[in-house]
Amino acid sequence: MNKIIHKNIRHLRKLRGLTQEQFAEELQVPRSRIGSYEEGRSEPPIAMLVAFSDLFKIPVDILIKNDLTSAQDHSFIEIGQQRVLFPIQVDETNENVIEVVPVKASAGYLLGYDDPEYIEQLEKIKLPFLPTGKHRAFPIKGDSMLPLKDGSYVVARFVESLDDIKNGTTYVVVTLNNGITYKRVENNLKTQGSIRLVSDNKAYEAFEVPAAEIVELWEFTCSINTQEYDAQELKISSIAQMLTELQVELQSLR
């Protein structure tokens, strides 16, 4: 008997706010059959698993192999025409934990972002002061987003829809061609069907990314520096930030 599928059916039904009777009506089966599946007295046949998959918009293999009972509504992530569910994980004290994408594994994130096993093996941290939502920590490379240093981490909250983009806010953007990128975003979706990614360090040119190339979008929540700033760096960083705000080109300073 597959114990996971029975727990998942019950949990997903409750997430939709349905009674067993209402759920049975949607699937056009007797209520007793739903009760039998949820209690583990019988196994759903292939046709019924496909019906569950279509109703919940979750791939069958995820439905039968992964324990989804710790997931909440906002932890559904759309992948193509289906939704892959990555539960907001909690520790033994029931506090949210955050997956950390390591620098060495960041290149492979584009291949593993929709793989529950890849996400499960990532290291976890806990930051109790974060707002509600699904968070993940991403490594920062280079100096395009001063004063963040190379090797820092940005902790960001998953954004479910591109329509929720706040113009001028910074995001971790995962794209098909550029992988993980942290930039300030200009929302041109309505006029050009794309977003413009802008570096705070004006030595780097802004560029457009079509909406179709965007795989994931994560809104900045906080940053973690892994190296200490020295006095000279802080002085240079402050000057650079001031010049950036004045829209002065930094190329001559490099």
Rank of each mutant, 00 (worst) to 15 (best):
L68M: 02
S199D: 00
Q20F: 05
A137T: 00
E21D: 14
K134T: 08
Y182P: 01
K141Q: 11
P30D: 10
I88E: 10
T169Q: 14
I239G: 00
D114L: 01
E92D: 14
L250A: 01
S161H: 13
T191V: 13
K190Y: 11
L148I: 00
A212E: 15
Q20W: 05
N177F: 00
Q72G: 13
T181Q: 10
E233P: 09
V101L: 15
G133F: 02
A71Y: 01
K235D: 13
Q232G: 05
C222K: 09
A231N: 08
Y153I: 00
Y109I: 03
V172I: 11
G17F: 02
I195R: 00
Q227T: 13
S36L: 12
P87F: 07
A211K: 12
N2H: 01
V100R: 03
G112Y: 02
R157L: 08
E208W: 09
R157Q: 14
S70I: 06
E245I: 07
P131Y: 09
E160K: 15
L176A: 11
E38D: 09
S237Y: 12
V90T: 13
L189R: 07
I34R: 06
A47D: 15
I236K: 11
L55Y: 15
K134D: 03
E92C: 09
D73F: 11
R13I: 04
Y118D: 01
N8R: 04
Y182S: 07
I9C: 08
L18Y: 14
P131W: 10
N177I: 06
I4L: 07
N187I: 05
N201D: 06
E92M: 11
L246S: 11
L110H: 04
L176T: 09
K190C: 09
V29I: 15
L18S: 11
E160F: 09
V215Q: 14
E78L: 12
V84C: 04
K57H: 14
D164T: 09
P128L: 05
T19H: 00
P30I: 04
A105R: 13
V90M: 08
P87Q: 05
K126M: 12
T181L: 01
A203D: 05
L197D: 07
V173F: 01
V101Q: 03
S152C: 02
T191E: 15
T221E: 15
S223L: 02
T132F: 03
G112S: 01
S252Q: 14
Q251N: 13
Y171S: 08
N201H: 06
N188K: 14
L146G: 00
Q28G: 11
V198Q: 05
K141N: 06
A71D: 05
F86A: 01
E117M: 10
V174F: 05
L243A: 02
H135A: 09
P30Y: 06
H11S: 08
S152N: 07
L189V: 04
F158K: 09
